[in-house]
Every structure is written in structure tokens, then in C-alpha cells.
Write a protein that binds this DNA or RNA. Sequence first.
DNA 1: TGCTAACTTGGCACTCGATGCCAAGGAGGA
DNA 2: TCCTCCTTGGCATCGAGTGCCAAGTTAGCA
Lengths: 178, 178
Amino acid sequence: MDAALALFLEHGFDETTVDQVVAAAGISRRSFFRYFGTKEDIVFGDLAELGPVILEALRERPDDEPIWDALEQAFGVLATQVNPERGAMIGRLVATSPALRAAHLEKHLRWQEVLAPEVERRVSTGDAPRGLVGEAIVATALACLDAASTAWLREGGEGGLDELRRLTRLALAAVRKG
Amino acid sequence: MDAALALFLEHGFDETTVDQVVAAAGISRRSFFRYFGTKEDIVFGDLAELGPVILEALRERPDDEPIWDALEQAFGVLATQVNPERGAMIGRLVATSPALRAAHLEKHLRWQEVLAPEVERRVSTGDAPRGLVGEAIVATALACLDAASTAWLREGGEGGLDELRRLTRLALAAVRKG
DNA sequence: TGCTAACTTGGCACTCGATGCCAAGGAGGA
DNA sequence: TCCTCCTTGGCATCGAGTGCCAAGTTAGCA
């Protein structure tokens, strides 16, 4: 991973081939694909599998907490699983590669599948088709988080995670106000 | 396109190779890739390029119209560009293929880039970093549209476009209410 | 009608990501 | 010591996508 990320940052993700990575890492191409299902997995690692972790955090929030507050707290566990520097690096790489952007969005979709039922349960209204409200709310939360991350990176990542949180709340407030 | 979509619907998108498509269509592999940059382009066609069309529709809405109403009207032009049956088929295909889902999300990102500045201009608040609010609002609108489409397809597409519009409004209302 | 320029088509070879199969090693336990 | 399990790497192969070039087709023009 270290060898690969160094190459990605220097030459770009799309311009770096798997052959270059395995040469730098001193392993065979075949072994590489045993540990990383795809080239994109190098960047995201086990982030895609974090859905259940976020869900667990969400489950621990009280039922009567406003959904947006609960989601904000739940996504907070991400900060404990990935340090800010790595997050910023991922964000910078994602911004430069369509392939990585697609993988990033796929990751969010997987989170969404995991989280939507619990959100749906919390806000259950009854008059909407099953699944609609939960999916919409989680997707919106992820969209705001993404927009905030992008803006945060554009400013150079100043202010650390607190600033990122502030931007996320700002984005969400704008959405709710219209 | 007709030959390819028939194959996709019968055998699935991922399971159908470009070679099969070009054999069915009676053209060469090389010519295929001159008309379709990627295999996914067969499904989405020129939909990815529709961003400017939506933008144009959005520009024609009065400045003092609530942003969500303006966006709803703007996205309404999609109905004039793609008939419901084709939309439903695309939706069904997208639901079955990760590759298509990724392409679909990429398409939304392209729309987002085009629409965000105009939305930002309309709701300009001033105290948020440039770009944050516009991106968040457009991404949310697309997320709600997506959730509504998924739910609509789950119910078999009953009620036509009017029902889809109703579900979209429902999703958005849930997001804004929390 | 005949000539030419421009565009279209297809074939070939190649790159790159990804996968299945199999044989060669190495670690660990009975 | 031997047997077993797991890891590793090599090989062949597939499928998407691209550059290059030659052949054919169309269109313009005299």
C-alpha cells in the first residue's frame, strides 16, 4: 500500500499501472490481486467495509434523537477509523481520477444499503413506499459530507476535522432551508 | 443500440461482451468503439450530455422561485428527452450491474458540475465557502430523484411519470423535515 | 462521367486490469 | 520425519479500450 500510494501521488492513479506497483512492492502481480480485488482497493482499503461500523454507531444513538444529529454522530466514528492525513490524501486522489471517483461513489452506495433500513425505522412515516425515505436521507447525508469534503480540501484542509464538521452542518442547513 | 439492449436485457449487462454485441449488430469491434466510448455508453447514450439542457431549463425559471421548485421544473425536461419505457429499462439494467451503477453516478456528477454554479448563484448566502451550498443542493436533488426512481421501479413503474414526481417530492419532503 | 479529397470502416497488434489453474515452496503440527 | 495447509508466483486467458494503417465508400467538382 505504501509503495502504491507513493507512486499514485507522484504520477497519478490512472497513469500508474499495477505492474509498476508490484515491481515497487517486490511482489508478484498474482499475489497483488489476491490481497486487493481491484486497483482501487489500494486507495480505499477496508473503508468500503465500514458500513456496519457506522450502522453500529447509529444504533447506539437514542431513538428520539433528531435523525440528522444521529447521523452526524454515527459518521463521527469514521474519524476514529481513518486519520485526517490519509483522508485528505484519498480526497486528493479521488479528485484527480474518474475511476477512483466511481469507486468512491460505489462505496457510498454500499454504506447506504446498510444504513438506510435503520434510518427508515427511525423516521417511519407510513405514507411513503418502503425504503424511499431511508434511502433519500442517507444519500443526502452522504452528498453533504462529500460536498463538505470537497470544499474542505479546496481550502487546503485548514481547521482539521472540526472545520470539516462545520462545513457538513453548513451544507445540510442549506439543503434544509432551500 | 437496439441489438445491444436486447442482449443486455436477456443475458445481463456484465455477462454480455462487446464481441457479442458487435456480432449481433453486424459491425466491427473497432467501429463500435468509435461510436461508443465505453460499453456503458450504449445504455446511457447521450444522457450524460444532458447537463447543459437541464441548466438551460433551470435558467429559464424566475430567480425568486424557491430553489427546489425550480430544480423540479428543470429536471422535468428530462421527461421530454427520454421516454418512460426507455427510462424504466435503464433503471432496471442499472439495478443489476455495478459497472452501470458507477457510470450512472458519474453521469450525475457531470450534471452536478454543470448545475451547481447556477444553484449557488440563486441561493447565495455568503457565509459558506464558494461551491459548497450549490453542490450540496444539487447532489441532494439527484439523490432524491434516484431514491424515488428506485422505489418507483420497485413498485413496477405504476402511475407513470406523475407517480415518479410524487415520490420525488415525498423524498425531498422527508429530507427537509428530517 | 471521371478524378480527387475526405470520411468511414475494419483488421491488427497492443496495453491494462482481472481471473482460473496449477505447481513449487514454506510453516506448523502429529 | 512426514504430512498437511497455506502462501506465492508463473502462465494462460479473457474482456475493455486504443493507436495505426490500409481498403473501401461517399461527396464534391470539373
